[in-house]
Design a protein around this nucleic acid. Sequence first.
DNA 1: CTGTTAGCGCTTTCAT
DNA 2: ATGAAAGCGCTAACAG
Lengths: 336, 336
Amino acid sequence: MSKRRVTVIEVAREAGVSPATVSRILNGTAAVDPEKQRAVEKAIEQLGYRPNVVARGLVTGSSNIIGVLTPDLASPYYSDVLGGIEEALEGTPYSPLIASGHWNRRDELGVLDVLLSHQIAALIVFGSSLSEADLRGLAAGVPLVVLGRRVELGDLGGASISFDDEGGAYAATRHLVEQGHRVIGHIMGDEAHEDAHERLRGYRRALEEAGLPFDGALVTRGDYRVPSGLLGMQRLLDGGKPLTAVFCANDQMAIGARLALYRRGMRVPDDLSLVGFDDQPGSPYTTPPLTSVRLPMREAGLALARFALARLRGETPTVQVPSLELVVRESVVRRR
Amino acid sequence: MSKRRVTVIEVAREAGVSPATVSRILNGTAAVDPEKQRAVEKAIEQLGYRPNVVARGLVTGSSNIIGVLTPDLASPYYSDVLGGIEEALEGTPYSPLIASGHWNRRDELGVLDVLLSHQIAALIVFGSSLSEADLRGLAAGVPLVVLGRRVELGDLGGASISFDDEGGAYAATRHLVEQGHRVIGHIMGDEAHEDAHERLRGYRRALEEAGLPFDGALVTRGDYRVPSGLLGMQRLLDGGKPLTAVFCANDQMAIGARLALYRRGMRVPDDLSLVGFDDQPGSPYTTPPLTSVRLPMREAGLALARFALARLRGETPTVQVPSLELVVRESVVRRR
DNA sequence: CTGTTAGCGCTTTCAT
DNA sequence: ATGAAAGCGCTAACAG
């Protein structure tokens, strides 16, 4: 917390060596006489020297900053990924520079410009509005890892990781079937997102596999936000179908749906069973605790950052896609 | 998204001017012949030039990075503040460099070192484990703004902003009193945090003001996390007091308390009324929607960043402390 | 193993 | 109004 700036020069002088030697010790770039090593360390301590990573970045041509582009800083969904990234970066010389693209291409491009102007060492992008071409263009200039999108980046040394949404939705719906439900509704996610379609597909596959007819009247559109779940549930309820369970494309909408039920005095799961998707932090504590499909966001963040780190070390890593898992809690009742 | 690095030199050559002129145009540092201005802009466009902020930082002695130290990246509570900071920084040349101190002094110090080594222009710290002396030491070297702590920083050009926890708790409890409740429990927050005591104090003041006795057996200790709310409620229920309402020191614990009630088949608010604190994002959608005290975290983030920005402009700003507000929803019933 | 010498890309005097 | 030149603090050849 020193005030005035101490530089390598001063440390070198204090320790009676050259700046280059100080630098070598700092970076472990070459072997150094242990005696001088100690002298330098002492000088650093005494002077309260702290390397200027900006200057270092200028000469090495890259900062030890890893850019992170997220669509939304304040979303718990994404902040878990950030937590994972942070964890992976801990103990490394890298720090995350986080920026939000607000779900739109224009902002994302602008923010990317800022990130890039900081000479970031690598870039991590969460489900963005960028085109595949944009992404590939980016990857050509900086090690890139993308989350939540399937983009071919391997030839450019990048990687993308995405979840098996279809499989997760299949598992969720199948669980309902296994519990004896026969008329199962679905509240879809935002159609603009590929995963909403994947989840619908999984729902459909589970139904068909069980010999249950797919009925369009049992599916209603949402946008992944709470109010749309509430509205969706109302629509489903008013549709007149004898449904006993609803699979919601995410927990947010499940919460909305649950509220709609509450408003009508219907009990969960006794009157209607509910399954969500994402298993967000609060879901174990809703009333009743929500059965959901866990998306390992934190693990994904870890994987993302570890991939980037490995690339930075010059390796050619491969990413493990963390798998989804149905978490059974209390929002589904067994029917017979 | 260019690959090779384009520099001012090349832009200058392309435009037929000196690098100094390009710099002047980039920064608006001095008036320049409009003709050359255009030529330079064209060259920049053509070459796809993007200033290297690292180099710029080296010469100006400061990056346009604003360091943010948060105790926890993945907490929704704090990510709202981040959102506010981000919003305030938008359109300015500054970007946030976010780091997490994991709620302990050692990590915070380490992470601070990283932040500082990036020559951050200003520093924003959320409720940290640092001592007042640490904080004052920091403030001496970099414009500092602290959230959630009362620290005297004015003489160093810094500022701290914190909420009126006592007042918020008073309002919450008083609401319960006004709704006819006479035996009101309290689940306290983590005693290590000053705000837990503040909130207890507000609860107590409201009680006393209403002529209700303060009863230690009605207060139980929690740690601000969900499970502690559940446990706390159980303890309260088993305490044998005829309570009709409980004020929880935060929404997390209120959710836990609500779950405890659900487990015992008790209805909210019919059998017991509940008030929380923080008004976290999910609270409008719990069953029933939770009455809570809104902490304007996003606004706080805005205020924090705006203060820093103003200081960076050389002004001597003052901070407005955003005020708390009781949000009445459906978790409290009127008694008579 | 270690010191000397050049810059990295940019801004900023200082002249003109 | 503009160019030339001098660094910002650090690392990376290159000699020794």
